[in-house]
Design a protein around this nucleic acid. Structure first.
Length: 479
RNA sequence: GGCCUCUUCGUCUAGUGGUUUAGGACAUCUGGUUCUCAUCCAGAAAAUCGCGGGUUCGAAUCCCGCAGAGGUCACCA
């Protein structure tokens, strides 16, 4: 029987998930989806000290918001639950006891401070620290007030990683690590092995920081008589400096912040997967379905990738532009200016249609569309900043605006006619478009740029356009 | 310090011995779309494939050494 693919994402609830974590989750999800397997979420809250309240909810929300639905997890259950480590203590104890019974685990006779001294000594000698050098001759059973250690059997290991290829390490990387801490909680090193086995996980996808401890796990799998799952090690995502792992400081936001700013799910998935995954073609834009279909572990990069926000922005712009207006409208409701709700839905959609090409992310909608929904405050600075207009002098500007009004008054106000009338005005006033149209633009939008002038005027309506120009004329006269 | 891993334009990457004067995309710059911004289109600049040896008729591609970077050596994951 062919083993079913079952992948898991197993974060610890110690804060928000960073992009690297999200990518690990994404790759696991993609692997499962692409092979018709299952994706499991398990919360590893074995470190009571580092626990951050609210982070479990945050993790669940982040995955859901991105569309990374899991088949089994703490809030939805599943046949291998519970899916939170802290609720599985009895299970870990039982497995630990097996090792004790076999003489493969023992109580750590030293205090934390004593071990710390050993460690410091090793460091001073520039040697790696190995606890097993201090392993007592006579091993005592399990005194549950003390940490339980694994009695390792050091040897050389060579194993196959689905991304990194053949990896190996000597016996110096095998040590007597802690299985159960003195507080009764398992360490990750022990707990995840038991959980993955019981949950029938086929592939462990995790970051590079676990390569060094894999030999230890291999040793433990042997002691436990468990066949290890396949190892899939993904490289880290680096910050812009290219050295350190991506952190909040590198203006890498929490995934929910990206979502809130109006980055689309498909953009985020497309971008994050492109950091390290490539199907060998020159294609840049993929739908989520397409990524699932084409995703293969062998196409994942071994080397780290840097986070480049520019590319994310470009991808997002692309997806926004390809949206149908109704889809864009649905996604945009929360970003439109408050006043927009007082307008007809078709008007709102028309406005969105005009700015769609200009959007990098949805939260720009408010500033890009505000003058369509409320009369803008006059911003004379725009004239000052425009050398040509400023040098024309107020009287000239006023006269140009007055002529514009006259021309627009005459218009039947179809898009074609507005275009025709304003082009006529160009000839009549002997002005260049860049002068006259910029002036009108400023008068009606109070903004340095906007969608096409004719479209803007047409949408704004005749009365509103003329009123705004008049207001501006008044301002010019009185200031 | 030991052990492990990685190394192609600024960035993400294609490339697995010859079709490569190393391809694409983002970013940058230039021009066009006779109004701005953006879109779109066209084009430019940008990697002596980390360095040094070897193998070969031929190497980014195979081998060795070196360097740089990262990871790890927790009662953190």
């Amino acid at each position: 029987m062919e083993t079913k693919i079952r992948t898991r994402f197993a974060p610890s609830p110690t804060g928000f998930i960073h992009l690297g974590g999200i990518r690990t989750a994404l790759f696991g999800w993609l692997l499962a989806k692409s092979q018709n397997g299952q994706f499991i979420l398990r919360i590893e809250d074995t470190d009571q000290g580092r626990k951050v309240t609210g982070s479990i909810e945050h993790i669940l929300l982040s995955l859901r918001s991105l569309g990374l639905e899991y088949d089994e997890g703490p809030d939805i259950g599943g046949q291998y639950g519970p899916y939170i480590s802290s609720q599985r203590l009895a299970i870990y104890n039982q497995w630990a006891q097996k090792l004790v019974d076999k003489g493969l685990a023992y109580s750590d006779p030293y205090s934390k401070t004593e071990v710390e001294e050993f460690r410091l000594l090793a460091k001073a000698q520039k040697k790696p620290f190995l606890f097993r050098d201090y392993r007592p001759k006579l091993l005592s059973g399990w005194d549950k007030t003390k940490a339980l250690r694994f009695k390792s059997n050091p040897k050389k290991y060579t194993w196959e990683d689905q991304i990194m290829g053949r990896l190996s390490a000597g016996d110096e990387s095998i040590d007597d690590f802690i299985l159960i801490k003195s507080d009764g909680f398992p360490t990750y090193n022990f707990g995840h092995i038991i959980d993955d086995y019981l949950m029938k996980i086929s592939h462990i996808i995790r970051g590079q920081e676990f390569i060094a401890s894999t030999p230890k796990y291999l040793n433990l799998y042997e002691a436990l008589e468990i066949t290890p799952p396949k190892f899939v090690t993904v490289p880290p995502i680096l910050g812009p400096d290219g050295k350190k792992k991506l952190s909040k400081r590198d203006n890498a936001k929490d995934i929910l912040e990206y979502l809130n700013e109006g980055f689309l799910e498909e953009s985020l998935i497309n971008f994050i997967s492109s950091l390290g995954w490539n199907d060998g073609s020159t294609q840049e834009i993929y739908s989520i379905e397409e990524i699932i279909q084409k995703f293969k572990l062998k196409d994942i990069q071994k080397s780290p990738a840097r986070f480049d926000q520019q590319k994310l922005i470009w991808i997002n712009g692309h997806f926004i532009r390809s949206l149908k207006i109704d889809e864009l409208y649905k996604l945009s409701i929360k970003y439109l200016p408050k006043e927009a709700s007082q307008f007809d839905i078709n008007y709102q959609k028309n406005v969105l249609g005009l700015v769609q090409d200009r959007l990098k992310y949805l939260s720009e909608i408010d500033s890009l569309t505000s003058y369509f929904f409320k009369r803008p405050n006059i911003n004379y600075q725009l004239i000052k900043d425009n050398k040509i207009l400023f040098n024309l002098g107020k009287n000239k500007l006023i006269s140009l605006l007055e002529k514009s009004i006259q021309e627009l008054e005459k218009s039947v106000f179809s898009l074609e006619d507005i275009t025709k009338k304003l082009n006529n005005l160009l000839i009549e006033t002997n002005q260049k478009p860049v002068v006259l149209f910029s002036l009108i633009r400023i008068a009606i939008t109070q903004s340095p740029f906007s969608p096409g002038l004719f479209d803007t005027i047409y949408l704004l309506s005749k009365s509103e356009t003329i009123l705004r120009i008049n207001n501006f004329i008044e301002y010019l006269k009185n200031n």
